[in-house]
């Protein structure tokens, strides 16, 4: 670790890094919000929206941090509502459509398993703001993981129909797993400075956690049909554009509106 906490040190990298984590949280929050009033039960509706609100809170902190690191006066709203899909750096996993309830839960489970490990490690960041975000986010992610893993176990080890749907969801989403651990030059520079988490190092713990739940869910780790990549550098599946159109439409139609 070197002294990397000065405001100017690696500012562009720190902005890019916070945007990645912030966009993950923002896009998944938007996806989960689509369940509002459509969840299987009232109780689950509340649970999903609680998770969405936790993620939105994380996104606000991270985008605000990114805007400050960038130093061009962009605040959280400017970054959330006025960037196009090619400027979003989220994982392709989180932009995937909700599908059925099993697909939403498998997506949440995979992401929260990763995010919890990431935030736990981020607590040791040399950057006090990122460390604080990790501290708070790790607790939230632990609950999201608990909730989603609970459902993956129940659905996988449930009825023939729930097992079939959960297995299909896992098969469809598994190609998006590797991207979480791919790493790149931005991350490597920040890791060297003690600011960021080395994503590649999280993979063994992720695999162990995933395998444990899969065993209880009577499911097995699938082979990825392909390997998604590019989300961190602005390459996305067709789904993100539609999501952003809905999320950004109101703000762009009425800039600065509040209620």
């Amino acid at each position: 670790m070197t002294a990397a906490t000065g405001p100017a040190v690696g500012a562009a990298d720190r902005c890019a890094y916070a945007l990645r984590l912030g966009d993950d949280a923002l896009v998944l929050a938007q996806r989960l919000t689509e369940w509002s009033a459509h969840a299987p039960t009232l109780e689950e509706d509340l649970a999903l929206e609680n998770i969405a609100l936790d993620l939105l809170g994380q996104a606000r902190h991270l985008l605000t941090y990114a805007g400050a690191a960038e130093g061009q006066g962009r605040d959280e709203d400017r970054l959330a509502y006025w960037r196009d899909d090619g400027e979003f750096c989220n994982l392709q996993l989180v932009e995937q459509p909700n599908g059925d309830f099993a697909a939403t839960m498998v997506r949440q489970w995979l992401f929260s398993t990763y995010q919890r490990l990431l935030y736990l490690a981020l607590r040791a960041s040399a950057d006090p703001d990122l460390s604080a975000i990790g501290e708070r986010g790790a607790k939230e992610a632990a609950y999201h993981l608990d909730h989603a893993a609970n459902w993956v176990r129940r659905l996988g080890d449930g009825t023939e129909e729930s097992h079939r749907r959960t297995e299909a969801a896992l098969l469809g989403l598994w190609p998006f797993v590797a991207e979480m651990f791919s790493g790149d030059a931005v991350e490597a520079r920040l890791v060297a400075a003690g600011v960021a988490v080395d994503g590649r190092a999280l993979r063994p713990a992720f695999d162990a956690a995933v395998d444990a739940v899969l065993a209880e869910a009577t499911l097995s780790r699938p082979e990825a049909a392909f390997t998604a990549r590019g989300g961190r550098s602005g390459h996305h599946t067709e789904h993100l554009g539609h999501l952003l159109a809905e999320m950004q439409h109101l703000h762009r139609s009425h800039p600065g509106a509040s209620w």
Partner: peptide
């Protein structure tokens, strides 16, 4: 609240 078993009931209670 309604829930299938105690674990889910606790989880939902936490959220509600």
């Amino acid at each position: 609240l309604h829930a299938a078993d105690a674990a889910l009931a606790l989880s939902h209670a936490r959220d509600l």
